[in-house]
Amino acid sequence: MNQIMHLLTGIVILLAGCTGYKKGPADMQYIIHNDHPGAHIQNGDYLSVHFIHRTQNGAFLASSYETGHPVFLEQQKPFFAGDIFAGLGLLSEGDSATFMLNFDSMQIILNVPRPAHAKGKYLLFTVKVEKVIPRNNMTDSTFQKVVQQFLAAEAANGRLQEPVKINRYLSSNKLTPDKTASGLYYVVSKKGNGPPSTPGDTVQFEYTGRYITGKIFDTSNKDTAIKAGIYDEVRSYRPDSSIAGLPKTIPAIDEALLRFPAGACVTLIIPSALAYGETGNSMFPPFTPLVFDLEVKTIKKRQSK
């Protein structure tokens, strides 16, 4: 999977400076890298798509390869001439392409904010169409049944692949972690001092969260955010705090804050059951394991009444 991502990333960077694009609808420009026989995607079709999203000057914005899961969506009527749905309508199952989309149109019509480090007129999307479920003449109920069967099969595969991904991560990073009764893996790089927190204590901690592929998606540290390309100038970067024993984040973090003393530095390898589970959300697909680096800064004991 990472090899595919690196290949497509290289294609995006190379194409950002070339002139081999075809003229698409309105101000869209595109290049089809792999063109398979088959019917083009139609409005209403259900799609499984991998993507890499970059600025015209090559700055990375997002990638489905970082999560290890494609995105699922229903093909829509374009919101404006030359948008990403217009581009997908040029493709069929198995195709891959890069689309240059006019960012001014996206700002005006969709109210999409310009990324702080974006330069140039266009945003680039490199996509790989993994699966197309054609709507054709199916009734709504039949089509939804087919889609749900597909999603159930994808979920079952995700469930099977998750322990494989975790074991591969541990092996490739030469880690021999401890494991709690809940299934949380952890590696202590600094033990810290004193007792761990007890329920009701206030724990202050620094953290960096990443997908198991290595991509950082969140951090409390400004320098780490800048280096990872996720810095948000509106956000305040500082240690987080939580009341030990009260659910605040994901179960794995809540558990870790009760386990380690002040000064401890640990890496948590987190199964999805202790994160966002089998349903996931818009940022974390189902059965997505995560990795967190955690440093417990201080523990303020609960005041007795």
Rank of each mutant, 00 (worst) to 15 (best):
residue 2 N to T: 11
residue 7 L to M: 10
residue 9 T to Y: 06
residue 10 G to Q: 08
residue 12 V to Q: 11
residue 12 V to A: 15
residue 14 L to N: 14
residue 16 A to F: 02
residue 19 T to E: 13
residue 20 G to H: 08
residue 20 G to K: 04
residue 21 Y to M: 11
residue 21 Y to P: 03
residue 32 I to A: 03
residue 37 P to H: 07
residue 37 P to E: 13
residue 37 P to S: 13
residue 39 A to E: 15
residue 45 D to L: 03
residue 45 D to E: 08
residue 46 Y to A: 10
residue 50 H to E: 12
residue 50 H to G: 05
residue 52 I to T: 09
residue 53 H to L: 15
residue 54 R to Y: 01
residue 54 R to G: 00
residue 60 F to Q: 05
residue 63 S to P: 06
residue 69 H to S: 15
residue 70 P to V: 12
residue 73 L to E: 12
residue 73 L to I: 09
residue 74 E to R: 12
residue 76 Q to W: 00
residue 76 Q to G: 00
residue 77 K to D: 13
residue 100 M to C: 11
residue 101 L to I: 15
residue 102 N to L: 11
residue 106 M to K: 03
residue 107 Q to R: 10
residue 107 Q to H: 10
residue 107 Q to D: 06
residue 108 I to H: 11
residue 109 I to D: 02
residue 113 P to V: 06
residue 115 P to W: 00
residue 116 A to I: 15
residue 116 A to E: 14
residue 117 H to M: 12
residue 118 A to G: 00
residue 120 G to N: 02
residue 120 G to D: 04
residue 120 G to K: 03
residue 121 K to G: 02
residue 123 L to F: 02
residue 123 L to M: 12
residue 124 L to R: 01
residue 130 E to W: 00
residue 130 E to N: 12
residue 131 K to P: 02
residue 132 V to I: 10
residue 136 N to A: 14
residue 136 N to K: 13
residue 138 M to A: 08
residue 141 S to R: 03
residue 142 T to V: 14
residue 143 F to V: 08
residue 144 Q to R: 08
residue 146 V to E: 14
residue 150 F to S: 09
residue 150 F to C: 05
residue 155 A to R: 13
residue 157 N to H: 10
residue 163 P to H: 05
residue 166 I to M: 13
residue 167 N to K: 12
residue 168 R to Q: 12
residue 174 K to V: 09
residue 175 L to A: 04
residue 175 L to S: 01
residue 178 D to G: 13
residue 181 A to Q: 13
residue 184 L to D: 01
residue 186 Y to P: 04
residue 189 S to A: 07
residue 190 K to R: 14
residue 191 K to A: 14
residue 191 K to E: 15
residue 192 G to P: 01
residue 194 G to A: 10
residue 195 P to N: 14
residue 196 P to G: 09
residue 198 T to Q: 13
residue 199 P to L: 07
residue 208 T to K: 13
residue 211 Y to R: 08
residue 211 Y to H: 11
residue 211 Y to C: 06
residue 211 Y to F: 14
residue 214 G to H: 06
residue 216 I to G: 03
residue 223 D to V: 05
residue 226 I to R: 15
residue 235 R to F: 15
residue 237 Y to E: 07
residue 241 S to V: 03
residue 243 I to R: 08
residue 255 E to T: 06
residue 259 R to G: 01
residue 263 G to V: 10
residue 270 I to E: 02
residue 271 P to N: 02
residue 271 P to E: 11
residue 274 L to Q: 04
residue 276 Y to Q: 10
residue 277 G to H: 05
residue 277 G to E: 13
residue 278 E to T: 07
residue 282 S to V: 07
residue 288 T to W: 02
residue 288 T to C: 14
residue 291 V to C: 09
residue 292 F to P: 01
residue 293 D to S: 09
residue 294 L to G: 07
residue 294 L to F: 11
residue 295 E to R: 12
residue 295 E to W: 05
residue 300 K to Y: 03
